[in-house]
Structures are given as C-alpha cells and as structure tokens.
Simulated scan of single mutants.
Amino acid sequence: MILADKIIEERKKNGWSQEELANKLGVSRQAVSKWESAGSIPDLQRILQMSELFGVTTDYLLKDEIEEAPLNEYVETNTIKVSMEEANQYLDMKSRGSRVVANATSLCILSPVPLIVLGTMTEDHTLVGFSLVFLLVLVAIAVYLFVNYGLRESHMQHLEKESFETEYGVSGMVRERRDKYEPAFIRNIAIGVVLCILSVIPTIMAGVMEADDSICGLSVGLLLIIVSIGVNILTRTGMIKSSYDTLLQEGEYTKEEKHLKKKTDDFSGAYWCLVVVIYLGWSFSTNNWKMTWIVWPVAGVLYAAVLGIVKMIVGNKDE
C-alpha cells in the first residue's frame, strides 16, 4: 500500500472528510486531494503531523512494504496485489458486461408482454400458447446471457469477494475515471428512475377511463416496456459505478462488507430458489401467467429489506 492509499484509509477510519483532515493539518483541501490521488507528496512536517493524528508510525506511512498491524478479523495476511493493467482490464470488462446484464434483465421484464397483451385481446388458445412459448424463449436467452457473462468474468470475481491491495498509482487512476463518469452516472440514474415512475401512467389512464380488457392489457404491456428501458439504464450505470467502488474498496465493497457478504451468500441463493419455486408453482397451478409475473418485482423489493435484516443479525453476532 502506497502513502496515498494509507492517508485515505486512515482518514476514513477516523471518519474525517478531506476538508476536516486539511483543517487539522493546516493545509487546503486541494492539497489533501492531491496527496490521496498520488499527485503530490506531503512534506516531512505534514508526515509527522499525520503520524500523530492517525496514531501510526512514520515508517508505516513512508514505507510501502510496511503494513499496519491487523486491527480486526477482516485484515488478511496473504493480500492480492492488483496492477494497473489488471485494474484497467477489470474496468473495461465491467463496462462491456454491463450491457450484457442490462439487456438480459430487460428481456426478463419484456418476456410476459405478448402473453399479457394477447391474453386480454383474444381467446385464441393457439396465440396464447405461442406467446407463452415466446415468454420461455426470452427467459432462456436471458439466462444464457447471465450464465455466459458469469463464466467469462469469473476470473475477476475475486476482486469483489476478497480483500486486495493496489499497486502504485492504481487508486489515483480509478478515482480520476470515476470523477469523469460522475456526471453521466447522475444523469442516467435520474433518467432511469423517472422512466420507472412514468411507466405507471398508461395503466392509471386506462383505469381512470374504465377502458376494456384489451386496452388494459396494452397499458400493462406499455408499462413493462418503459420499465425495461429504465431498468436497463439503471443496471448499466450501477454496474459501471460499482466497478470503481470495487477497486477502491468503498461502498458495498469495503473489507467489512465483503466479509459480511460471504456469510449472506447462502441466504441469497436460497431466497431466489424459493422465489422461482413460488413463481412456477403458482403459474402452473393457476395457468394465470399474465398475473404471476408480479412475483418478481415483489420479490425484488422484499429481498432488499430481508437482506438488510439478515446482515443486521449476522453483524450483531460478529460483535
């Protein structure tokens, strides 16, 4: 770990912003920012001040090969080193993969549209049967894309699950790319959220106008199409943003969060297997495929809440 990364780590351990650290050292926030991006190196006086503030030795700050003594169970002895080439390869891989995952997700959302629309417009069992086959084909394509992506990118998944250290200059490069992406991230998140909110307008209008079943079916189909576009944008944007967080080990990819995620992976697998069983059981028992798709958005909303409770319980046990 280089000096820039050590300053960032120690500052965050103390819960200080760059401006707060700058005030304690009597320098500008821009100076601290340059130190943390490896754009400049603090003078000896500042090194001594930081040593006292952080409660570490000057040797620890100045010598790359010296690491701080482990403070908790999340620190690992055999730390992976990530080079500049590997970091760029990972970022490019996630950027390409975000399109694959986003498109596969959209296919899942769009898959019931023909079934819903035709189911309300005609009683022809042949057309409804073809729409059901179309639904299964789209889901199969989406599953293929998910599996193919997972296998192709599996050699890099250790960065999302294990602790690692970056070589000199990597963190600065990642922060620079993240800062450039920030305006696009904010814009795309806003567009995706707005589309998801606006998607209910056709359904609301159909209800207000007391439209017949065929119009209601079309409104639900339009809702899903708009949602698929919004979710596509959100998925792409989120994956690219998470790739920067992964390499910087921030947000959901801190060492503590990775440790916690290892303990909740079994729950996640069991949860989604149960959702699949409920969906297929309900669908085949009622043959009401145009309604049972509601299981997925409900399961998605509940997953975030239930996972939060599980993490809380696991975290309390670790304390």
Rank of each mutant, 00 (worst) to 15 (best):
L280D: 10
L198H: 12
I294G: 13
E210Y: 11
K290E: 10
E67L: 09
E36G: 10
Y244D: 01
A184R: 14
R177T: 07
T246G: 00
G169A: 12
A38T: 11
R46C: 05
S214C: 12
D124S: 14
L145H: 10
L25N: 03
I80Y: 08
G119E: 02
L302D: 10
K180A: 15
D212F: 13
T286F: 06
T237W: 04
L136A: 11
V231E: 13
G315F: 09
W282K: 08
V231L: 15
L223Q: 05
N72G: 05
K12I: 00
I197K: 04
L247M: 06
I215P: 03
I47D: 04
P297G: 07
G281A: 07
T166D: 04
L118D: 00
Y279F: 15
V128Q: 09
V170I: 11
I191E: 04
I7N: 00
T235E: 06
W296M: 02
S95V: 15
L71F: 04
V128D: 00
H125A: 15
T57Q: 09
I41D: 15
Y74H: 01
F164L: 07
G150K: 09
E167I: 00
G207K: 01
T122D: 10
V128R: 10
L307T: 08
T254F: 02
Q89E: 14
H155W: 06
L302V: 10
N288A: 13
M50D: 01
V193W: 01
M239H: 02
I41K: 15
I66H: 00
V306T: 10
E176M: 12
L136I: 14
V276Y: 10
T122P: 03
A299D: 13
Y60W: 04
G39M: 11
F134W: 09
T292W: 04
C273L: 15
Y244W: 07
E250S: 10
D64M: 05
W293M: 07
A206G: 12
T58D: 15
K311L: 13
P112W: 02
L71E: 10
I201A: 12
Q30D: 12
I294Y: 08
V128E: 04
I278Q: 02
E19F: 11
E153G: 03
A206E: 08
K262H: 12
V170S: 08
E153Y: 12
V113T: 09
V277Y: 08
A87K: 02
G251A: 08
E76Q: 06
S154Q: 05
E160G: 12
G119P: 05
G221E: 11
I201R: 00
T235D: 00
R46S: 14
E76D: 02
S83I: 06
E123D: 04
M156I: 11
L198I: 13
W296T: 11
R236L: 02
S285N: 07
V301K: 07
T126K: 14
C108V: 03
Q49K: 07
Q45L: 14
S17R: 13
